[in-house]
Amino acid sequence: MTTNAEEPATAIRAYPNGPILVRGDFELLDEDGVPVATDRRTVALCRCGRSAIAPLCDGTHSLLPRTPRS
């Protein structure tokens, strides 16, 4: 298998009315700069501000009114 030097080490994607998914190499720190314990290869980051496990997403956004896609 060849590796593509242009391929980014981390891929970040926003989902409509949902969280941001981060895949690849990353270090996640909380508001105090303390590493967030997660050994997942892909994490979902809260975008609605209501997650009980922020900065990770816990699905709470699905209870909030949705904004139509612009």
């Binding site: 969280p19 997942r40 979902a44």
Partner: peptide, 14 residues
């Protein structure tokens, strides 16, 4: 399942 499926639901639907 709270953490994992917050990721999975996006992958599954989209």
């Amino acid at each position: 399942h709270v953490e994992a499926d917050a990721v999975h639901e996006q992958i599954a639907a989209h």
